[in-house]
Amino acid sequence: MSSPSYYAPTGGLPPQTRLLTDRAVFTDAYAVIPKGTFSDIVTSLLPFWEKSRFWVIARPLSGFAETFSQYIAEVGPGGGSDRPETEPEAEAVLFVVEGRLSLTVEGTAHEMSEGGYAYIPPGAEWTLRNTGSGVVRFHWLRKRYQRVDGLDAPEVLVLNERDIAPTEMPDTGGVWATTRFVDPGDLRHDMHVTIVTFQPGGVIPFAETHVMEHGLYVLEGKAVYRLNQDWVEVEAGDFMWLRAFCPQACYAGGPGPFRYLLYKDVNRHVPLTLGGG
């Protein structure tokens, strides 16, 4: 089996000769943000980050997806932050797609490279630095942790995809598998970030329709995805953003694997107030 690859945007601007026709779309049920929209002019700067910029690809929106934000971070050599998070109840997942970084959480240092995953609990003190000579790029997913009386918050996790065997989905012959960084039975976690892999020709053979919100960033390959009533083509570098109950299915197009980083909210009662209470 070939080693996994991880698409990362590099910015820049398209030439003035380029046609305006693109695949970007925002509907009341889903959005597709194609890789061609990750230009210099849509990056954001954040407080207390040095030599860093961020593509914000998801944020809570009333009436759409309301549980999470997702950034793609680009940090230059020597850059990073000693105060990366300004919301004390925010938990985080980091996933490295290019380069190497040094992450310190509650005084313990961790070196992370491509395929690296970190879960950072709410309220944890952490810092991040690019100690190498090249740019590092990583996904940063943030969610306000939903505390439950009688359940402690999860502990820090720092792992790498290459060290985790994917779990084959039932009755698929291995063409559909999920790499899980967290035990699905651990109810302390209120979000999961996983990697879903389809071999060429693999399918989601029904329209999934469920309460979980999704962010799907395509790391590798291409596919045709069914979103609500539409079929859309997606490829490495594209992002799909789905509100709750948006029907979804796909065909993996080949010639290699189709893989995406997947966010979903899990393991909590639905708040019985509008806007999540």
Rank of each mutant, 00 (worst) to 15 (best):
Y6S: 08
T10F: 07
G11R: 09
R18L: 05
L20Q: 14
D22W: 10
R23E: 14
A24R: 12
A24K: 15
A24I: 05
V25H: 06
V25K: 15
D28F: 00
A29H: 13
Y30I: 02
A31C: 04
P34C: 04
G36C: 04
T37E: 04
T37Y: 06
S39M: 11
V42N: 15
V42G: 15
L45S: 05
P47M: 13
F48D: 15
W49H: 01
W49E: 04
K51R: 14
K51N: 14
S52N: 09
F54S: 14
V56S: 10
V56W: 07
I57W: 04
R59N: 13
G63R: 12
E66W: 00
G76H: 00
G76L: 13
G78E: 06
G79P: 05
G80E: 07
S81N: 06
S81M: 03
D82T: 11
D82V: 09
R83K: 09
P84G: 01
P88S: 09
A90Y: 08
E91Q: 13
E91S: 13
A92S: 08
F95E: 06
F95T: 06
E98K: 15
E98N: 14
R100Y: 00
S102M: 03
L103P: 02
T104E: 14
T104H: 07
T108G: 02
A109Y: 03
H110W: 15
E111H: 05
S113D: 09
S113K: 14
E114C: 12
G116E: 13
Y117E: 00
P121W: 01
G123T: 12
A124Y: 02
R129G: 02
N130R: 11
N130S: 13
T131W: 06
F138V: 11
Q146M: 06
R147T: 13
R147P: 01
D152S: 14
A153Y: 00
P154W: 04
P154L: 07
E155Y: 03
E155C: 05
E155H: 06
V158P: 04
L159A: 13
I164F: 03
A165Q: 07
P166E: 02
P166Y: 00
T167P: 02
M169L: 11
G173Y: 10
V175F: 01
A177H: 08
A177R: 11
A177K: 15
T178W: 00
T179H: 14
D183M: 08
P184G: 11
L187Q: 01
L187F: 11
H189L: 01
V196Y: 01
G202R: 02
I204L: 08
I204P: 01
F206C: 01
H214I: 01
G215R: 01
L216M: 13
L216H: 03
L216S: 00
Y217H: 08
E220L: 00
G221R: 00
G221P: 04
K222T: 12
K222Q: 11
V224T: 07
V224Q: 06
V224K: 02
Y225N: 06
D230W: 13
D230G: 02
W231D: 14
W231C: 11
V232S: 08
E233A: 13
E235K: 06
F239R: 05
M240E: 04
M240T: 02
C246M: 09
Q248G: 04
A252N: 00
G253C: 14
G254I: 08
P255Y: 05
G256Y: 00
P257H: 12
F258Y: 13
R259P: 10
R259W: 03
Y260C: 03
D265R: 15
D265G: 04
R268Y: 08
V270Q: 15
P271C: 10
L272K: 09
G275N: 13
